[in-house]
Nucleic acid binder design. Structure first.
Lengths: 168, 168
DNA sequence: ATAAACTTTCAATAAATACTGAAAGTTTAA
DNA sequence: TTAAACTTTCAGTATTTATTGAAAGTTTAT
């Protein structure tokens, strides 16, 4: 298999996985391409390789930098910006968790708590069940939040370390 | 707060969370509505409450049943089908994990392994790095797979139990 | 057998999302 | 200060995804 074929397959895999998890295809593909590149690429390199417009490429590189998955790199004597991906898979995973937690889990928890706190004026079987559903879900989101916190602090956590060891 | 308001907020929350995670809004909203309902609802009840078409409602109920999150319920003397949601949050979470694992993780692992096994014909710095990227990602997907397996078997797992206890 | 009651399918359409490319903005070199 | 080199923005457009509703299919009661 040629390098290019392997790259294309990986880029495609990452694109599909991304879109299944609510991350846009171009962003995932740019990420994949940068993961496959030992050093750096410019916006134009990426546009060329993935056949994307400048606007699209630029916006998604910015977004990858917001997620702390890609960094800017300056090349001596060059005016244009170059980009480099974070290559360590565990670091990538924790950065993604951190970002999704911040963007989705925390706001969801806030809404759940708001509904939970607002007492229901009606007092019947339905309101009992609604309360329970909302309470259960809020508790569940809290658990997920704590679990993600635990994983993000995995390095310092003995139980989690043991669990990961079990998985080796 | 009226029951209806609380329900609407929860349905909306679930819809937003769903679409952020690649699950369609109608499916998530139907799920939320059934979670909020102590017993059962018919297709028409759901159409009415969420203002959805028959086709949309029907297809998404089927999909929720494929995910094992909703069951059919027959009401004595009634011809039409009624539906009831699984209400236990931990059960819901494991069913979703199971399904996503099957639909997304397993196929992704297969592709990663296929690329990994296909040796690269070129022998240069780039091919070394491509190999490493693909190997790392395949290993990572394997870890996630094992971790999800562990969580699905949590009840029998002492380490995991301890971890969940820590979170209480 | 037939028709009413109900469910499923799917082509057409709508809505949401992503992408383009050119114009505007910014930085740097001379 | 000017202009070349580069980056960012965003209105218009294309693509993808979701939804509708009516026709076809199925089941049940008589």
């Amino acid at each position: 298999m040629k390098n290019q074929e392997a790259k294309d397959e990986f880029i495609n895999l990452w694109g599909v996985l991304g879109s299944q998890w609510g991350i846009n295809r171009s962003m995932a593909q740019i990420h994949a391409l940068l993961l496959l590149t030992p050093d750096t690429l410019s916006t134009e390199d990426i546009m060329e390789e993935l056949q994307l417009s400048r606007g699209n490429t630029n916006m998604n590189i910015r977004e990858l930098m917001n997620w702390n998955l890609v960094y800017k790199h300056f090349v001596a004597g060059e005016r244009k910006e170059y980009f480099k991906a974070e290559h360590d898979v565990w670091t990538i995973a924790t950065r993604i968790m951190k970002e999704r937690k911040k963007r989705e889990l925390v706001p969801a928890k806030e809404i759940a708590q708001k509904i939970r706190k607002a007492k229901l004026s009606e007092n019947n079987a339905e309101s009992k069940h609604i309360q329970k559903t909302i309470t259960d879900m809020d508790d569940f989101l809290g658990r997920i939040d704590q679990l993600s916190e635990l994983m993000l602090k995995a390095e310092q956590n003995i139980i989690f370390k043991k669990m990961m060891t079990l998985l080796k």
